[in-house]
């Protein structure tokens, strides 16, 4: 059965977000990771803009614009600079291999599809598939935060998680604006926090590898 153009485009963009998430969890270089993140942000902006026109909700264009300007341009450029200044543009150490990460990621996507599609049989098909995609992106972002030890890639993982959340929020029809602003705002604060942290860590330790902060404290579990 056909759902029409609305459904197809939204579906395409949502699927694109998940694909880029996969690209990110297997990316070994920091610069490539940032590029993938920027691509995801662009896709998010497109998808949100599409939702804005489909739902006749002009305020969503603001969210799309924030995603485009802030997440696709400012943040990647800023992080690029930080990486340069810290001189850590080499390989990322992952805690587990990329094959295992890939398998785990596939498992998570399967899980989110099963769960979300099962619990929302009555919701409109576009919203429920959006939710399933969004949950996949959220879980893949989580996976990235867990498998990476480098502070910058953990931050990127977190922002990818936020992308999933924005996608879910805009997929829900008529969700009040307060949430979108707050999400954008939280990203801003988060970035501020991260910036402070990165500079302090740099100042003190000359590295942003989280493991370098580990020190025997007399009661390591």
């Amino acid at each position: 059965m056909g759902h029409g153009l609305t459904f197809d485009v939204a579906h395409l963009l949502g699927g694109g977000l998940v694909l880029v998430s996969f690209l990110m969890i297997t990316q070994h270089r920091l610069y490539a990771l940032l590029n993938a993140f920027a691509l995801q942000a662009v896709l998010l902006a497109l998808s949100v803009a599409w939702q804005a026109s489909v739902q006749h909700a002009p305020h969503l264009y603001i969210t799309a614009l924030i995603a485009l300007v802030f997440k696709a341009i400012i943040v990647p450029v800023g992080l690029h600079r930080i990486i340069q200044r810290l001189g850590i543009h080499r390989e990322i150490e992952t805690v587990i291999g990329s094959g295992t990460t890939m398998l785990a990621g596939m498992g998570l996507v399967a899980l989110s599809m099963t769960v979300m599609l099962k619990v929302t049989p009555t919701a409109d098909p576009l919203a429920r598939e959006d939710l399933a995609f969004a949950l996949s992106v959220v879980l893949l972002g989580l996976l990235m935060m867990v498998t990476r030890r480098n502070a910058v890639s953990q931050v990127v993982g977190f922002m990818s998680l936020e992308n999933g959340l924005v996608f879910a929020g805009t997929g829900a029809r008529g969700m009040p604006l307060v949430v979108e602003i707050s999400v954008a705002f939280s990203v801003l604060i988060a970035f501020f926090v991260i910036g402070v942290f990165l500079f302090r860590i740099r100042e003190r330790f000359d590295t942003v590898d989280i493991e370098a902060l580990d020190r025997f404290r007399g009661e390591r579990r």
């Binding site: 929302t120 919701a123 919203a127 939710l131 969004a134 949950l135 959220v138 972002g141 989580l142 935060m145 977190f158 998680l161 936020e162 999933g164 959340l165 879910a168 929020g169 829900a172 029809r173 008529g174 969700m175 949430v179 999400v183 939280s186």
Partner: peptide, 18 residues
């Protein structure tokens, strides 16, 4: 991570209420 999961849950509640 906690914040992210809680927000997703909040969105789901809204979807249920929709």
């Amino acid at each position: 991570v906690g914040i992210g999961l809680a927000l997703f849950g909040t969105i789901l509640v809204y979807m249920a209420a929709l």
